[in-house]
């Protein structure tokens, strides 16, 4: 199932980039997708970490939520940048990721980095060191709203 899905994704990528649909190119795309799948299996990247199909259903609701979060925090950063006195208060903090799997923790860490105003500087086990542009950003993360949302996303698998 995972392999079929990965091949389908690769084939879709080929079709989108190619834009020519002669029989020769369509078949060549299929062959190349299967070859890439074999290479991925040999590199051991076609597992639940490299192609997490279990999470796709959760991603349908998680990604829009993340987009809204990104919008809100980006607007906050925009106001700080355009503020004449540049009111920043950089803060370092440590947050605990409560996700069970490494994929869940990686999702959490990357979501933190993706929202402007907070960056995951280091990840050690379930402890993420976070640099925040303003102290409020660090406090928000410590409150754990995003952590719970990512856990729910992970639990939907």
């Amino acid at each position: 199932m995972r392999y079929v899905s990965l091949t389908a994704f690769l084939y879709l990528f080929w079709l989108v980039l190619s834009g020519h649909y002669t029989p020769m190119l369509v078949v060549a795309g299929l062959v190349c997708s299967v070859l890439c799948l074999l290479a991925a299996i040999r590199m051991r990247t076609a597992d639940e970490e490299g192609h997490p199909i279990e999470l796709f259903r959760g991603a349908i609701t998680y990604l829009p939520w993340l987009a809204v979060e990104i919008g809100k925090s980006a607007w906050a950063v925009t106001k700080i940048i355009l503020h004449p006195r540049l009111p920043i208060s950089p803060t370092m903090t440590v947050v605990t990721a409560t996700q069970r799997t490494t994929v869940g923790r990686a999702t959490y860490a990357n979501s933190i980095t993706l929202t402007p105003g907070t960056i995951t500087v280091a990840a050690d086990g379930d402890k993420l060191t976070v640099h925040a542009l303003v102290t409020e950003g660090a406090l928000d993360l410590e409150a754990g709203g995003m952590d719970r949302r990512v856990s729910r996303f992970e639990g939907s698998a």
Partner: peptide
């Protein structure tokens, strides 16, 4: 003022 805070600014370009 310094490199870490600049990363936050750059991520506004990368996202929004």
């Amino acid at each position: 003022p310094e490199v870490f805070t600049r990363m936050h600014a750059a991520s506004v370009i990368d996202t929004l």
